[in-house]
Amino acid sequence: MDTHIASQINSLLAALILLTAFGLVVQRRMNALLHLFAWQGFLLAVSTAIVGYVGGAHDLYISSILTLSMKVVLLPYILHKLIVKLKIHKEVETVVNIPTTMLMGIILVIFSYHLTAPIRELSTLVTRSTLAVALATVMLGFLMMITRKHAVTQIIGFLAMENGLLFAATSATYGMPLVVELGVALDLLIAAFIFGMFFFHISTTFDSLDVDQMARLKEED
């Protein structure tokens, strides 16, 4: 594959990842959220594999397979099971309305481009222009965690942030060293186990997964 074409494809994938990130921020239905999240993981895995192929960094294939199995199959499956079991289908209330959230998202993207501008000039990799998109994905995941008041959506936001981080690692460099990638995947697996437990605890203690109910611990005046 020609480097030029590869970089074109990668930019396209980056754009699609950013699109899914925006989709996650504005989507209200739980099932659609899960689908979008799985798509984002899939795009990330494809992009990682392409970077690995072009750069001759074969470690990235392992990273790509890890992403595919964790972010596309395992985590959406676990979340889906939990959603069915805890009977969550209804629309998710957002704190801020959708157009405002969109605007905030756009500002975050511009901010990310501005922040990474000096770095993009320094990188020699074909993938360097995607670093801004990666940071934007992290920021949008962050935005999602702030604007949503549902435990499951907050977790999806958290996982989307993690996607952005992995994307940053493959776009700025040819992936982190393998031992680090494996460690991050292991931590993610433990985190998945923990939030699974949490959903049960929260829903049995509070009768719903709306985190707005958790407001006991405040400073009294």
Binding site: Q154, F158, L165, T173, M176, A191, F195, F198, M214
Partner: peptide
């Protein structure tokens, strides 16, 4: 206790994710 742990999980999760981004830049 569940509220405290959830806050701990989410806040430190986000925080530590930002630290990972810093580590990626360091590696870069």
């Amino acid at each position: 206790a569940i509220e405290a742990a959830w806050k701990y999980f989410i806040l430190c999760g986000v925080g530590i994710a930002l630290a990972l981004f810093g580590t990626v830049l360091l590696y870069f």
